[in-house]
Computed example of a mutant assay.
Amino acid sequence: MRYLLILFLMLISCSKTLQDQQSLIINLEKVIPEELSITSFIKSDLESFYEVELSDGTLFYYSNDGEHLFLGDLFRIEKDNLLNLSYAREKEKVLSVLSDLDKNSAIKFPPQDKKYEVFIFTDVDCGYCRKFHSQIQSYLDLGIEVNYLSFPREGLNSETAKKLVTAWCSDDKQVAITELKNGKELPFQNCDSNPIEEHYNLARRIGITGTPTIITKAGISIPGLMEANELMEYLK
């Protein structure tokens, strides 16, 4: 009888926790932008706070009384070291995106002797994307395979998005994306298999807003242009 009572009390406690959590989610949905949704709502390592993730990749912490939230990194002190829990969580998200990615959908530039690989969210109009591509041989010479993923910064209905569709639907994707990054105008091409929207949504899941953004196999996200020798430090 005693064990049944304990079990009953545990069930009541769990039910109340779920109800409280649902109330917090409902209240939070009232204040976040309408175009966003809550994709994750879990207990965090910080007592009395939940970890919340939005559909655009934003990560923040929300108090269990529903009155406070903060954006920023959460650290845990371990002996003489600081462990960045938020950074570890971000890496998990990036690795999740990589696992969901159809790697055959990338435009691949393989080196002669492959030692590493990176995935780069790019468009064809941004200056730093063009600069990266103009020196792509320096990455290939170090054995870094470059896999381009599309990310039209101005949205899926932009002119840049149409150019990216053309690149991915061309018979020779390497030549097409090179010509577009060099400023050449190409006739619009479309195909049922173009992955532009898929890539765009994957990028938004991890909060990417600009190009180029370099993703390593270890789950490190590097925004902006990085020279080949510098990038090697993240790959070794």
Rank of each mutant, 00 (worst) to 15 (best):
L4I: 08
S23W: 00
L24D: 00
I38S: 02
S44D: 08
E47R: 12
S48C: 02
F49N: 07
Y50M: 06
G57E: 06
T58K: 11
T58S: 14
Y62D: 04
G66R: 06
G66V: 02
H68T: 10
F70A: 10
F70L: 10
L71Y: 15
G72P: 13
I77C: 00
L83R: 11
L85P: 05
A88E: 15
K91V: 15
E92M: 10
V97S: 08
V97D: 02
L98H: 07
D102P: 05
N104S: 14
A106R: 07
Q112N: 11
D113Q: 14
E117A: 13
V118Y: 04
T122K: 09
D125V: 13
G127M: 11
G127E: 13
H133F: 11
L140R: 13
D141W: 05
I144D: 06
Y148C: 07
L149T: 10
S150Y: 05
G155Y: 01
E159V: 06
T160G: 02
W168E: 07
S170Y: 08
S170R: 06
Q174T: 13
G183S: 08
K184R: 12
N190L: 01
N190D: 15
S193D: 09
S193Y: 09
N194Q: 14
N194H: 12
P195A: 03
H199V: 05
I206D: 06
I206C: 09
I208M: 02
T211M: 09
T216Y: 02
K217F: 00
K217S: 14
S221M: 14
G224F: 06
G224R: 02
E227H: 10
